[in-house]
Amino acid sequence: MGKTFQKPEALADQVTHYCPGCTHGVIHRLIAEVIDELGIRGRTVGVAPVGCAVLMYNYFTFDFMEASHGRAPAQATGLKRVRPDLVVFTYQGDGDLASIGMAEIVHAANRGEKFTTIFVNNAVYGMTGGQMAPTTMPGQRTTTSPFGRKVEEVGMPIRVSELLASLATPGYITRQTVLKPKYINRAKKAVKKAFQYQLDNTCFSFVEFVSTCPTNWGLTPVEAIKWAEEKMLPYYPLGEMKTPEEA
């Protein structure tokens, strides 16, 4: 895999600010590779979240803009509606997308907006210091659930992909991960498929990544991967939840 070491054109020559073992960087790289392969760098606009990836535009070489916390899908709607020829994607964490921005993502998906969302589910609010997210696992300790997530008080974690897949509007909804090399190829295919649906003006496309946040989980990178595989993957199963062909 000599090619892995070659920097995609869509990726800037920059060292990222992410913690060791954080999956944000790998996901960025997949996006950059797909954009290169599809040859769409010159007409792509990325929308960055508020979360650990807030500065992600520093790592890419095409047009980018910030969003406010959770509103990236509304912004992408505005961009894409007035310039349908552009390729637009949002990149959002689980606090951003599944908590404060839940209305915006559900409605964008339901309108079938022709943009792509990359959703990074690391079961906590990474940026603000590891608080509980809507995706935090039952019993998981966070800085705002010091005794573990109590489902009788705050409910079960939200499975966003399943929720969006339940909408009657056609869409491409898939859950992937980059926890181990064996998952990466499939994940990249999913990202590419998502962008292709957008290019074909087919439907809204959405790729969830089951991710890690070793820093806030208080685990080593290796332990974090193990925890995500053992605790998260059974609850957040990988695979396509919905394709537009089904509808």
Partner: peptide
């Protein structure tokens, strides 16, 4: 032109932001 009823004024303000960001009058 483009007419869209957003899901809330919060969302609308960001649709405006997005459309303005590509340089269109909105």
């Amino acid at each position: 032109g483009v007419f869209l009823q957003g899901e809330s004024e919060v969302a609308v303000s960001y649709m405006i932001l997005g459309a303005a960001a590509v340089g269109e009058r909105v």
